[in-house]
Design a protein around this nucleic acid. Structure first.
Length: 457
RNA sequence: GUAGCCAUAGCUCAGCUGGUUAGAGUAUCAGAUUGUGAUUCUGAGGGUCGUGGGUUCGAGCCCCAUUGGCUACCCCA
């Protein structure tokens, strides 16, 4: 016998949890579809080479790799040993792993677009809701298997796409009751311009990493670490000014324009942000020039959604524009922009804030008691008719004490039980009992469905 | 990858400075109750105390290792 268990960071979902998850998923799907996105699904695993190098060094470490089959075949042993040696040196080896679980939905989508560019109609708007896997250390709000819901548009440079995605985010979170979820906006071009202004375009990564830590370690330490990385005090001062930008969205735009004026890259970024700001209600988004986001491939607008501050959860969604993702797969010139919803974190946030509707927990509406083999023939027949009318119902499969059947109904939160016993069979009646109120009624068998329909609605 | 806390019945947890046969609540099963639940009463089953070593006359308790869970860092949804 083995001890039953599941891999670290994965979970079983009970029926009550699944129902709540479906509520989230269905809400998101509805908003995706009404906004013109069409569904796509891609395999759980991709070729390893499709994924590596797309998420930064940290990201590469977190990709779940799949061991090749047939490694022990005598014919492959030499290759396998050589391959394993490479693995020990920290490199990948096709001879050991050539496939991996998907890390997000964006790269598989880019791969799909590159593969099928001839058959797609651009702008191509797709949505995708599937699990992804990361070999991260599990902790609060962090799982090794979790579900993302992505909406992306490729083949269009228009900033109207960005505008639409802001509305999509806002509308979806509002529907879910997360009105306090904060949509934050920035543009990678501003970060690039800042690096340029500091005369250190090559420092872009270390600058963004440093300013990303502002909230955690404070301004002084950020300044310190920047000096250590070799920037002059004048350059550090520029970054200080950049980080000190505050006020309304409008005021922030003015300040950044002053700071970075004359730099083409910055003017472009500001123009893009203004395009969006002019077309969405002001309270929909917060500008935050500190927002960097880890994924390497973003080039323009970047989005991040923060959970309401009362819940310590951090980011529940993110996205951005990537100008040349398909270029990695040999297809140049297709720009895309997309956003992602983190279903599992949204679930955790909604659960702690008690935002799920109450009527999600019950699926089954009617339990037909099993009163014996003869009686069950009739009960099953009526039960089938009830099912066909669309009301979830079932016959208790075993002929056991009523006590037990009642307890089963109670455990599963079934609101109605129906008794078809010998008496009822003779008179073509049924007894229905409303467990919530304790009331019970004797009906003609053919009245049952309309009675239930009136009750349930 | 680094650090801290935790691990006892299906579940939630007690278990004293190390000391007989490890407890409770709840859940499960059976009975009081062969056509009417949630209450009550009675009884039963269920634990190699995460795993492996060590210290000790004696370990659930102390030490080491290991696995898993949670939390934080890194990073992220």
């Amino acid at each position: 016998m083995i001890k039953p268990g599941i891999p670290q960071g994965t979970r079983d979902f009970t029926s009550a949890v699944v129902l709540k998850r479906l509520y989230i998923l269905n809400t998101i799907r509805r908003h995706f579809e009404v906004t013109g996105y069409e569904p796509l699904e891609t395999p759980a695993m991709e070729l390893l080479e499709t994924l590596t190098g797309k998420y930064g060094d940290e990201g590469d470490q977190l990709i779940f790799k799949i061991l090749n089959n047939g490694l022990s075949d005598a014919a492959n042993i030499e290759k396998a040993q050589a391959g394993f040696q490479k693995i020990l040196e920290g490199k990948n080896s096709e001879d050991i792993t050539s496939r991996a679980l998907r890390y997000d939905l964006t790269i598989p989508f880019a791969r799909y677009v590159a593969m099928n560019r001839g058959t797609l109609h651009f702008p191509f708007k797709r949505y995708q809701m599937q699990p992804v896997w990361r070999a991260d250390r599990p902790q609060k709000g962090r799982y090794r298997e979790f579900t993302q819901c992505d909406a992306d548009v490729v083949g269009s440079n228009s900033l109207w796409n960005e505008v639409e995605l802001v509305h999509l985010y806002r509308n979806t979170f509002d529907t879910l009751g997360l009105k306090d979820a904060e949509i934050t906006l920035n543009n990678r071009k501003l970060l690039a311009a800042l690096a340029l202004k500091c005369g250190a375009a090559s420092m872009l990564t270390s600058i963004t990493i440093a300013i990303d830590k502002l909230d955690k370690i404070g301004i002084d330490k950020v300044m310190e670490s920047l000096k250590e990385s070799g920037l002059t005090s004048e350059q550090v001062q520029t970054i200080h000014t950049y980080l000190s930008i505050s006020g309304s969205n409008r005021e922030k735009i003015n300040q950044i324009s002053n700071l970075l004026q004359g730099i083409h890259e910055a003017e472009k970024g500001i123009e893009e942000l203004e395009f969006i700001l002019n077309r969405v209600p002001d309270h929909y988004v917060h500008l935050d020039f500190k927002l960097a986001r880890g994924l390497d491939y973003y080039t323009g607008t970047i989005y991040e959604v923060k959970a309401p501050q009362t819940v310590k959860m951090g980011s529940i969604g993110g996205g951005g524009r990537y100008d040349n993702l398909t270029g990695l797969f040999g297809v140049e010139g297709i720009s895309g922009v997309g956003i992602s919803f983190g279903v599992d974190r949204i679930y955790d946030v909604m659960d702690t804030l008690n935002l799920f509707p109450n009527d999600l927990n019950t699926n089954l509406k009617v339990l037909f008691f099993n009163m014996g083999d003869e009686e069950s023939v009739h009960a099953f027949e009526i039960c089938t008719a009830v099912q066909q009318s669309g009301i979830p119902s079932m016959l208790f499969p075993d002929s056991v004490k009523l006590d037990k059947q009642f307890k089963y109904a109670q455990k599963r939160n079934i609101p109605y039980i129906v008794i078809v016993g010998s008496e009822e069979v003779i008179h073509k009646k049924v007894v229905i009992k409303h467990l919530n109120t304790g009331n019970q009624y004797t009906l003609n068998a053919n009245e049952l469905i309309s009675h239930l329909q009136n009750q349930i609605k």
